[in-house]
Design a protein around this nucleic acid. Structure first.
Lengths: 224, 224
DNA sequence: GGGGATCTTGACGAATCCTTGACACGGCCC
DNA sequence: GGGCCGTGTCAAGGATTCGTCAAGATCCCC
């Protein structure tokens, strides 16, 4: 899902934006000052940043310049000022768009779509490799012996959840909840069926799996 | 030199922009109506377009939509209206930025720089070749056995979205949103119809596609 | 206004995928 | 050894999705 980081010190506006954006299918993170914004952007790189210039701890343009030191994520700047110099400064500091408060939510969403449309091709690949197969999370593809393996949507979701946390034990409830939804927490037979299919498609010897390990009574684990 | 096409029916503003932009090192072409604007953009593809929505011969959004039928050049929209719907419509029609008259020239230049900066790192190979056909994204042409293949605007957009990210799975929602707009996210039958037409025109054997692959339940993928 | 190209819409088998139930196997405790 | 639990395997049905076609509706250029 597309992730958006919203940076603003106005907690009311922050909440309004969170609700609106989530309602439109975005994954939302928030920060109330420049320091935590930079931290958040580093730890969970978003697909887009909405940045208010008026922050309590540091100037918005300074945040932007710091961010631009290591990230090229699209940035949409919010500001209460109508002055032309502010816009010029922000845009030259690396902002991709500028919108003045008060603004319509529809306009914000439209500008956001325009920015994301522009940057859609600049995403980075995430690839996980094992001895037997290779999972390309960015391209949504699995290779085995150079051939790509055909996975159904459910098989892929399940593999993705496991691969995104290598070595980590994922409980049956977590898997069921992520793939089928929270209501399916007891349908553990789904897991058995689909894990068998994944192993048949990916493991060299499906009877003795080496990468998709089952932890009896608890869950499953992906080992590269 | 960076070339900018300015489209406006106000000859005074047109001249002012020409002088200002040239003074800042841009190569400037102008057009006073939608028809000649599209013609100019086709004959001498600019690096950026500044487009006034209020044109004598046709609606500005219509010009934009036509332009988007074959070009992905960044477009900065000018408008005298402050209404939110106008902005949303223009941005969803494919505009990259929107600025309201009257505007400061400094702000215009700053937004222009931001747009050009962003599109600078989005440059990518313009020609993609497969065993069966060749796609020239720059010239908007498809060759098959040396012959020109005739594609409708919609067919082209769909092919373009897929070809711009080779090997990558493009979801049905992404495709629908990029080709038809965000509001068409559920019209998945469009995809089936146009994918069939593309295959008929491009694949050696449309019944067993080798380059335009469908991933059941998720989307489509282009493999060179 | 007319004619051609293009886009939308609906319907239908065919292919694919998900669900469900049944059964076998191994380990563990009584 | 027998019963129980968790797991792996398989196959069939039902549901969903896909490819295809063709007929209107719409747009666009002359």
């Amino acid at each position: 899902m597309t992730s958006v980081l919203v940076v603003d010190d106005d907690t009311y506006l922050l909440r309004a934006l969170r609700i609106t954006l989530q309602a439109h299918g975005y994954d939302v993170a928030t920060a109330a000052d420049g320091r935590s914004a930079l931290l958040a952007a580093q730890q969970h790189p978003p697909a887009l940043v909405i940045l208010d210039l008026g922050l309590p701890d540091m100037d918005g343009s300074a945040v932007l310049r710091k961010l631009r030191g290591w990230s090229s994520v699209p940035v949409l700047v919010l500001s209460a000022r109508h002055g032309s110099e502010d816009k010029v400064e922000a845009l030259d500091a690396g902002a991709d768009d500028y919108i003045t408060k008060p603004f319509g939510l529809e306009e914000l969403l439209a500008r956001l779509r325009a920015l994301l449309r522009r940057s859609a091709d600049t995403e980075q690949p995430v690839v996980v490799t094992t001895e037997a197969f290779t999972v390309d999370l960015g391209k949504r593809r699995v290779l085995r012996d150079g051939q790509d393996v055909r996975l159904t949507p459910t098989e892929w979701k399940m593999l993705e959840v496991l691969v995104r946390s290598p070595e980590k034990l994922v409980t049956q409830q977590q898997l069921l909840s992520e793939v089928w939804g929270p209501a399916y927490a007891k349908e553990t037979n789904y897991l058995r069926v689909y894990m068998a299919q994944l192993r048949r498609k990916l493991e060299p010897d499906a009877a003795t799996p080496r990468h998709l390990i089952t932890e009896a009574g608890i869950g499953y684990r992906f080992v590269p």
